[in-house]
Design a protein around this nucleic acid. Structure first.
Length: 459
RNA sequence: GCCCUCAUCGUCUAUCGGUUAGGACAGGGGAUUCUCAAUCCUCAAAGCGGGGUUCAACUCCCCGUGGGGGCACCA
């Protein structure tokens, strides 16, 4: 069999959303699994709704996710190919040519200034109650689609349809099929929302005398709350949002491929190479999947936890680079490094970093009211802070264990334990009752800052 | 309204006629820990309903019901 050619064909009419990303992913996986070609085609025929900004977002998101395209518009190291141009707005001449073929073969005709595709079969007029108008029904032989995921699907078209509008612009169904023919696409992998349209597409292939490609309709992603499929307006629907929040693309990819596909066993977290090896169309589920941000968050954390220090630092720098408090945070590279290494194992996503580490970068950090109330209520917190400050004056701040020893010895001498100092110290040093280990926090903050904050709080 | 499609824990899913119906996320409990996480152990949690087929059905078929999608001179 000849080489697999698949395509991802987004239209830049809005931000790039999670459902599109998964369609792209499944196409990409199939191409990589089979050693085929992944084509990116931009469906920008609707000039009024398209924008260059949204086009940029598509390139950026695909690149960020690592879904590199072999053929398509050039962006970065991706793109090129012998079947261009890959933007539909630049393929007008090709469409004109294909319309001509249909016209001269008697499979299309003009009416009201538009060009219509002509179905084959017995025709009669009738009033359509739903459309509230008289239409010409055509009794056609049903189209049979042997879908790689859903099996045999049968459906009959029963009305001629427009392929070129009266303003001369070709419609989606037409250009989609023409491009798939011209670009020699072998497998059409797309969302189930196109399943009903497929009979129209197959009729078009038949009109051109071309054998249709294999179809594979993947289930849709449903919004996590409420009815219906996920749309661009839904919470967590935009890929660029995850990019901005510092999610790991490999985590998002791993999560996404599990929405509708699985390796056939219990494994969930898998390197992309393994997913490529195992992925195949018959393994894709038939039922829609609901989006679950909690599971995504968990996946992201699992990936975060295993990042080597250099990558953690790189990601943190990138995040703080665009954050308002980034300047203060990044001003001292060594200190920044220590802070990040301390906080990294505790966060679920990179965008928690700023709030989680404020007190490292300013003395003017917020004090959590509830934590304060709780900590200050018992014992004699001010006395504890003064005792702690006294002990730390001569302590060794270079090691967590050394600091722990110092506090324990001092506490024991008073018949107390580490715990009696821990929470009040944490509040004084960070303003909260949660955070990294207190000894590590003290080591990184350093003696001067620690003593100042303990005494400031000990009033 | 018509057409297409889907159906296992709250959610994502395994099972391709014979299992104590398994795993993961979320939730409960516990262990550990200097807090919170993480980690480990543990508990609770599912075959939509009704008919068939079969020695045997979550699994195959039909009918309901429910969900999703499509029915444009949008893509």
């Amino acid at each position: 069999m000849s080489q697999v050619r698949v395509r991802f064909a987004p239209s830049p009419t809005g931000f790039f959303h999670i459902g599109s990303a998964r369609t792209a992913l499944f196409n990409w996986l199939y191409a990589r699994h089979t050693g085929g070609v992944f084509v990116l085609r931009i469906e920008d025929t609707d000039a009024a709704r398209n924008s260059e900004e949204f086009l940029r977002v598509i390139y950026d998101s695909l690149t960020w996710l690592g879904l590199n395209w072999d053929e398509g518009p050039k962006a970065g190291t991706c793109g090129g190919g012998d079947f261009g141009p890959y933007r539909q707005s630049e393929r007008g001449a090709i469409y004109k040519d294909y319309v001509g073929r249909l016209l001269s073969a008697g499979r299309a005709y003009e009416k009201d200034g538009a060009v219509w595709f002509k179905l084959l079969g017995e025709r009669h007029e009738m009033f359509d109650e739903h459309k509230k108008k008289t239409v010409t029904k055509v009794k056609t032989a049903p189209v049979v689609i042997n879908d790689l995921i859903r099996g045999r699907v049968e459906r009959a078209e029963d009305e001629d349809f427009v392929i070129v509008r009266s303003d001369g612009s070709p419609v989606f169904h037409f250009v989609n099929v023409v491009d798939d023919i011209a670009m020699k696409i072998t497998h059409v992998i797309r969302g189930e929302d196109h399943l009903s349209n497929t009979s129209k597409h197959v009729a078009l292939y038949e009109g051109f005398g071309v054998t249709p490609p294999a179809f594979a309709h993947i289930p849709l992603i449903l919004k996590q709350n409420g009815p219906g499929k996920m749309s661009k307006r839904d919470q967590g629907a935009l890929v660029e949002e995850y990019q901005r929040r510092g999610f790991l693309p490999e985590a998002l990819l791993n999560f996404l491929c599990l929405l509708g596909w699985n390796p056939g066993d219990d494994r969930e977290k898998m390197p992309i190479a393994e997913i490529i090896r195992l992925f195949d169309l018959p393994g894709v589920n038939q039922s829609n999947a609901r989006f679950d941000e909690k599971k995504l968050a968990h996946m992201n954390m699992a990936y975060l936890l295993e990042q080597p220090a250099v990558r953690a630092l790189e990601l943190a720098q990138k995040y703080f680079g665009t954050h308002p408090t980034g300047g203060a945070a990044l001003s001292n590279a060594d200190y920044f490094r220590e802070v990040i290494l301390l906080a990294w194992p505790k966060i679920k996503s990179v965008d928690e970093l700023a709030a989680y580490t404020v007190y490292f970068f300013t003395d003017d950090f917020p004090i959590d009211a509830k934590a304060r109330e709780k900590v200050m209520a018992k014992g004699d917190p001010s006395a504890r802070l003064r005792e702690l400050a006294g002990a730390l004056e001569t302590a060794d701040f270079s090691s967590d264990l050394g600091l722990e020893e110092t506090v324990k010895v001092m506490a024991a001498a008073r018949g107390l334990g580490f715990g009696d100092y821990q929470s009040v110290a944490r509040l004084a040093l960070s303003g909260t009752n949660v955070g990294p280990p207190i000894t590590g926090m003290m080591r990184v903050l350093g003696r001067d800052r620690v003593l100042a904050r303990l005494r400031r709080f000990a009033v």
